[in-house]
Write a protein that binds this DNA or RNA. Sequence first.
DNA 1: TTGTAAGCGTTATCAT
DNA 2: ATGATAACGCTTACAA
Lengths: 340, 340
Amino acid sequence: MNNEKTANKNQSRSPTLEDVARAAGLSPMTVSRALNNPKVVRPATIARVMEAVNVTGYIPNMLAGGLATKRTKLIAVVVPQINNNMFVDTVQAIGDELALRGYHMLLCIVGYTPESETDIVATLLSRRPDGIVLTGIHHSSDLKRIILNANIPVVEIWDMTPTPLDMLIGFSHDKIGHAIGHYFLEQGFTRFGLICASDRRAQVRKKGAIDVLRTAPGSFIREITVPAPANMQVGRSGLGQLMQNGEEYDAIICTSDTLAQGAIMEAEARGMQVPRDLKVIGFADLNFAAYNRPAITTICIDKVKMGQQAANMLADKIEGYPIAESVVDMGFSLVIRESA
Amino acid sequence: MNNEKTANKNQSRSPTLEDVARAAGLSPMTVSRALNNPKVVRPATIARVMEAVNVTGYIPNMLAGGLATKRTKLIAVVVPQINNNMFVDTVQAIGDELALRGYHMLLCIVGYTPESETDIVATLLSRRPDGIVLTGIHHSSDLKRIILNANIPVVEIWDMTPTPLDMLIGFSHDKIGHAIGHYFLEQGFTRFGLICASDRRAQVRKKGAIDVLRTAPGSFIREITVPAPANMQVGRSGLGQLMQNGEEYDAIICTSDTLAQGAIMEAEARGMQVPRDLKVIGFADLNFAAYNRPAITTICIDKVKMGQQAANMLADKIEGYPIAESVVDMGFSLVIRESA
DNA sequence: TTGTAAGCGTTATCAT
DNA sequence: ATGATAACGCTTACAA
């Protein structure tokens, strides 16, 4: 009996290709082909393999597979946060779209000021993902080095630059700031308060707005930075600080809808009415913006589409399809509701 | 010159332990130890290794490592959705806590009615995660079989049963239903409408409430089921349907805050005022509930704590620490605000 | 403290 | 159409 290897193999060790092969009376290689490249194996053989797979309860080991093929069907996704409504739609869209394409999503939530984005990405790369999604375009040179060294497709999202690491889909925070500035200037306002999160992209939006607002003769501009991630409480105290010396404003520009919501609350707590006494504008068109009282005027970006396209750009590149545009500016739209 | 292997190795192939070993003049095994079990190697040797790691730009290959050790430092997380505010706090908490413990999170978003949860989990298991988080306690027998076969720790969340697959942290939907029922009965109401999502857990909450409401003499109860995932629009039309024949209600019970928000809007659109003319209660204490007008009375569960504990139970079990309680009922609290 | 050899479970490649 | 063999990059177990 030459089955010393067969003996005591029915442990809790999970079945391997070899176990399936033995059960089917085939070689492991044939089983592998039946599973991954069925068109090159005889239908009858495939049936035997499937039977054996069911009998054994075989589940492939993608660690071994990935090691051999250098393809993991894994995409790493790096975002600052998901529970503040900013990125969650995009993340879900990425996950959904990747699933359709047969990929899994390794999600890494790093906060707004990761001690070391480089180290985080390095551990992610140790899983040998087939591609990676990065939020934003500002990365350390170390990060750039290791990621280019990894030689995998990258999509940066939520920002805009003509020179991404690899591919990019996003929008221009600077242009958004300009649009907000012009919107208020056209209405003849001159006194502006800005509540800005201590987040690099938020600051660009703020700067863009200020650049425009400054062009108005006799304009009064006061800005304040609050810690990221933004929440309503921080928005309230932001407006409080802007008004602490009795300053009066025509309009308050907030770098997120969450801040805007807080600012509106604070304004009302101080006996003002929005928009009658004060205009407030937010950013991102978060899920509550349309239903707030007053409904929040804001900048809308298509977060779902951004996620879908990011996922597909990655999958396309991984699979060798041509990429029509590797830098995509999705644009944005001003959604005028009640608050401004 | 015995370096035929050394030659033409400076390709774009990413460096391996062997490359580092060669650069450091050590064996691969020593490099491995220096990296993973430094206390058994001489400090001077460690320094040489670190130097070589920097020079080569080495990033470990966890596929190979996991294949050898059968430990992946990967946790699979399965949730229905993240962009409806229901599960996102828990998911973020799981991810954050896992990161602290040195694990990565493989996130799988499956919707409320996955065609085949079993297949989805099977592909997840092919990554050989060290543990898995499942939302809910109702699984097919196939699913149970493959997951028990995989022989890894499992935590089920967001529900309650004395007999989980392995570990469990959640709360009782039935008890929540009861609590809501009693809350309204105590106020002497008799006419109830229920808007329930077509989601198994929501239906249990609904049933729990009805069981209590029925005990009131002369009670009038009307229920309606709306498709999951719930959104505000669906809540609006839900109330519309409940009232389409001119029925009048004292209170509307919604299986989520989102539905409640929609029901409130519809009530107001019909000229009613909440809570004066109609009470509305929701579920989950989603982020907007406290700030809605009127603020939504709801059931609060500690979603963050649930995620943290789920992550830690898993990591503890994986790492061999004892688990104090493998079934944790987190309870819930009734948050009385304005809407009911 | 460091090194050697074998094996983890796949697939690429070459034979048959 | 199927099989044998050698990687893939790491760690376990043992030896030195």
